[in-house]
């Protein structure tokens, strides 16, 4: 058995363990940190699968920025999540089990890892790999596909990122001042002068620092 398969199985086992820990935990701080761990482990797994560009993005976005953004969002909310009663967990469990079974059913039709005749490795993919050296003269085929052959798609992605930022800025404001506008339809003021979430909500006494890692 090649050693990379052992590595892959190890990484996947770690992902499952981290995922179970995330589901079981109540402390949002620990959950955010474990999500960063999950991203980092999956980045390492992508490296072992030779998808270096994807691994790079996963490590930078998943483990770096999104952890910080989740922390910043968490500080606006409570530090611990409320326990969910068992009766509300049955529906999601059924959906997860059904989708998992469907995926296992579909597994038989998947091409083997690294199969040279799989759809991803033939047709248009091979075409790009063969033509990049002549058309664009750069060694990294991923960059050539992203920026040139599939420039439309990347433009769409840039616009998606821009719209996400625009949406957040419209909702929250760059300086936290999104709520500071005033409108007087029919002489009635409908807005407040201060952003509502500027003050922290007091926690119940017994909820503080239970299992909190800080």
């Amino acid at each position: 058995m090649p050693s990379t398969i052992i590595l892959d199985i190890g990484f996947m086992a770690m992902l499952v363990v981290v995922a179970i820990a995330i589901v079981r935990l109540r402390s949002l701080f620990a959950i955010v940190m474990l999500q960063g761990v999950y991203s980092l482990v999956s980045a390492m797994w992508f490296v072992s699968l030779d998808a270096v560009d994807v691994a790079f993005t996963e490590a930078a976005v998943g483990a770096g920025v999104s952890t910080v953004l989740m922390l910043a969002a968490m500080l606006l909310a409570d530090r611990e999540s409320l326990p969910v009663p068992m009766s509300r967990q049955i529906g999601p469990l059924i959906i997860v089990v059904l989708i998992g079974l469907a995926m296992f059913y579909a597994l038989g039709d998947m091409p083997a890892y690294g199969d040279p005749h799989s759809p991803a490795n033939s047709y248009v993919g091979m075409d790009y790999i063969g033509r990049t050296a002549d058309d664009i003269h750069i060694p990294n085929v991923v960059t050539a596909v992203l920026a040139s052959y599939r420039g439309y798609d990347t433009f769409g992605e840039a616009v998606v990122v821009f719209s996400a930022g625009l949406g957040v800025l419209l909702l929250l404001g760059l300086n936290g001042n999104a709520g500071k506008w005033r409108a007087k339809p029919n002489g009635v003021r409908i807005s407040k002068a201060a952003a509502p979430a500027a003050r922290r909500r007091p926690l119940p006494k017994d909820a503080v620092r239970k299992g909190d890692a800080s």
Binding site: V168, L169, L172, A195, A197
Partner: peptide
């Protein structure tokens, strides 16, 4: 910008 937006509110 997203970090500023979230960070400025607490």
């Amino acid at each position: 910008a997203i970090f500023y937006a979230f960070g400025s509110r607490q």
